[in-house]
Design a protein around this nucleic acid. Structure first.
Length: 512
RNA sequence: GGUCUGUUCAUCUAAGGGUUAGGAUUCAAGAUUUUCAUUCUUGCCAUAGGGGUUCGAAUCCCCUACAGACUACCA
């Protein structure tokens, strides 16, 4: 840090829908940076576009950050010394700042209608050019720079819809050091006179963002790369307001790209390839469409965060598993890369497995219980704990406990065809019946107590171990998977074990 | 089209002029598990291309190619 002050950073999403994992990573990096330097992380809701407001989106953002363990120091829910934290509630503030820019000659009124501007864009496009509202064109357009005073007064009073545009200076080179990208520069001739204040009385992103970052004493702006092109405008705004001295430092994060193909990661990719792009499931209030979420798909927040942290950042060591505390400890902006990273759903899976086996059996059982309940099953907690301990090594997701261990809670409903044709041959049903009989004679019903005499029996009868074990497994779980067979016997109990064998013998047809 | 940004194994990445270019994921093979998964071992695989600068370049410079972002009264 150049200054000694504790950094203040903000995550400033628009409540236009669920938070995307790209946005989540931006929030994460802001949070890690702030906490690493002992600073504050603020949440500001940028809801200046009323037409795009989606109910529930703000609550979603809060819930997602909570789930991920990203703690907000100041925000609409938490409050703080710089409230309010919703731009819609700060509406009254912005007009004065727009006026300030007009008075200082840095901005002007513009009266062009959308239709007029569209026409200009269209005709420029036909000539293979791009229409830009700037120093070269603004004198030929309807604005306070091209009008006489009386025309202006008339236009202002006749209630015509107007906007305020920034007066982009001519041929000025704007230079700045981006903490991630280094020195970057732009020539203002390539930029346009952006609208700062809309005809509906709301500021645009650019004005609101700069004003609020200044007022909220933000020291570092860490945002996605898509904002890099508007950095010169923002810098010029700070200058125009006379806030250059306290201007925040900028960092533009590389984007998260599609796993395959071109472009940045989108909701569509997740739908097509079968992985979530949102931390939490989301139901679109208009269409009713449901998008899956990491939480509902059985991912653990620590794993998601860990995976996200390594997308575009690395610690410079070979460590890969990081708790949030360790991330805070190791994070630094100068180890953030410049190029976009492809999202890899496979690696996300691997991370999740790492965290799944780290969790205690009790914790995992607690997470799995709601899933069991959603299936209408009432299972003693102790049993769930035991099952989790037995199957967690073979799971990638919390939900997978069911796939890997459903047979602890209910009889198999079908038998794997491949296993049947491979194992269920002549003589096997009889063999199973003898085993069922034998189980009835076992004294102490526990895995080790069953195993020993069972092995003796198999040897005595001269049976093939592979056939016996696999056929028995088929009877008990319905296929060729699951933990130790005697553990299964112990847990489901003698009665159920015998019953399952009987049922299999009755149902499965012997194959040639 | 214009502006800006970027380019190391299939993927995430390390190597701040000198290493057989390292690790992780995926994939493949073997071992373990009388099942499946896990785990372990081994293997495959990269400096976009072309010019410079230098004793020496993944690293510095230039060109080309490719990729991405932006180009709204959206953020």
């Amino acid at each position: 840090m150049e200054n000694n002050a504790k950094p203040r950073v903000r995550f400033a999403p628009s409540p236009t829908g669920p938070l995307h994992i790209g946005g989540l990573r931006t929030a994460l990096f802001n949070y890690l940076f702030a906490k690493h330097h002992g600073g504050d992380f603020l949440l500001r809701i940028e809801d200046t576009d009323q037409t795009r407001y989606v109910p529930g989106a703000e609550e979603y953002i809060l819930e997602a950050l909570d789930w991920c363990g990203i703690k907000i120091d100041e925000g609409p829910r938490e409050g703080g010394t710089h409230a309010p934290y919703r731009q819609s509630e700060r509406k009254a503030l912005y007009a004065g700042y727009a006026q300030q820019l007009i008075d200082s000659g840095n901005a002007y009124y513009a009266f062009d209608t959308n239709e007029e501007l569209d026409a200009f864009r269209l005709s420029a496009e036909l000539k293979g050019e791009t229409f830009t509202y700037n120093n070269a064109t603004r004198n030929g357009l309807k604005n306070s720079l091209s009008m006489t005073d009386s025309q202006l007064q008339h236009a202002l009073q006749s209630d015509s819809h107007h906007v305020v545009r920034f007066k982009m200076p001519e041929n000025v080179v704007v230079e700045e050091v981006d903490l991630i990208r280094g020195h970057v520069q732009f020539n203002t001739n390539q930029l346009d006179d952006k609208v700062l204040f809309k005809s509906d009385g709301m500021p645009t992103y650019h004005l609101a963002n700069v004003v609020d970052d200044h007022l909220m004493e933000i020291t570092h702006v860490i945002r996605g790369e898509e904002w890099l092109p508007s950095m010169p405008l923002h810098i010029l705004l700070y200058k125009a307001f006379g806030w250059k001295d306290t201007m925040p430092q900028f960092s533009h994060l590389p984007l998260i790209l599609k796993p395959v193909g071109k472009g940045k990661l989108s909701k569509r990719d997740g739908d097509q390839m079968g992985f979530p792009v949102f931390p939490l499931a989301w139901k679109d209030p208009e269409t009713g469409d449901i998008s899956r979420g990491y939480r509902e798909d059985g991912y653990l927040p620590d794993g998601l965060i860990n995976m996200l942290s390594l997308l575009g950042w690395n610690p410079g060591t070979e460590q890969e598993i990081f708790s949030m505390e360790q991330l805070i400890e190791s994070f630094s902006l100068d180890r953030v890369g410049k190029s976009g990273s492809r999202f890899d759903p496979e690696k996300t899976k691997w991370f999740n497995h790492q965290y799944l086996i780290k969790h205690s059996d009790q914790e995992l059982a607690t997470l799995f219980l709601p899933f069991l309940e959603s299936k209408g099953m009432q299972v003693p907690f102790e049993l769930v704990v035991r099952v989790c301990g037995l199957v967690k090594e073979r799971c990638h997701f919390v939900n997978e406990v069911w796939e890997q261990g459903f047979f602890f809670f209910q009889s198999p409903t079908s038998y794997d065809e491949k296993m049947v044709s491979k194992r269920w041959k002549d003589g096997v049903p009889e063999m199973m019946a003898e085993i069922a009989e034998f189980f009835g004679t076992v004294e102490n019903w526990s895995a080790p107590q069953i195993k020993e005499p069972f092995s003796l029996l198999v040897t005595e009868k001269g049976w093939n171990f592979g056939t016996v074990m696999n056929s028995l497994r088929l009877c008990l779980v319905g296929g060729s998977f699951g933990p130790d067979i005697f553990e299964i016997c112990e847990i489901i109990g003698r009665e159920e074990t015998v019953a399952r064998i009987g049922r299999a013998v009755r149902i499965i047809a012997v194959v040639g």
